[in-house]
């Protein structure tokens, strides 16, 4: 599975990590709804660390991403605004 970290690059991540990432994704969303800044940054950091364990996609390879993660510097406020601007 290819995962992009915004403003950073793509990683080739073991498909077996999908369920772990999905669980983190849920925690992340809950943290955004609660407005819990600490939890938000902790879960985002966990997800990014997991993805970064994968191999970085080399510069000469052109592939699509299956999942896109915000960069480490995305604030809770930005994340909330994003969700409001693009309702499901």
């Amino acid at each position: 599975m290819i995962v992009r970290v915004m403003s950073e690059g793509q990683y080739r991540v073991d498909g077996g990590l999908v369920s772990q990432l999905e669980a983190m994704d849920q925690h992340l969303l809950e943290a955004v709804h609660r407005g819990d800044e600490d939890a938000y940054h902790r879960h985002l950091r966990e997800a990014l660390n997991l993805v970064r364990q994968g191999a970085s996609v080399p510069a000469h390879e052109l592939v699509n991403s299956d999942l896109v993660l915000p960069g480490a510097d995305m604030t809770l406020r930005d994340a909330r605004r994003l969700l409001e601007e693009h309702p499901e």
């Binding site: 849920q26 992340l28 991403s65 999942l67 994003l82 693009h86």
Partner: peptide, 12 residues
């Protein structure tokens, strides 16, 4: 849908 999945849709 979680934050990352939503992010992916928006980005794509």
């Amino acid at each position: 849908m979680g934050l990352m999945s939503r992010m992916s849709t928006i980005f794509k």
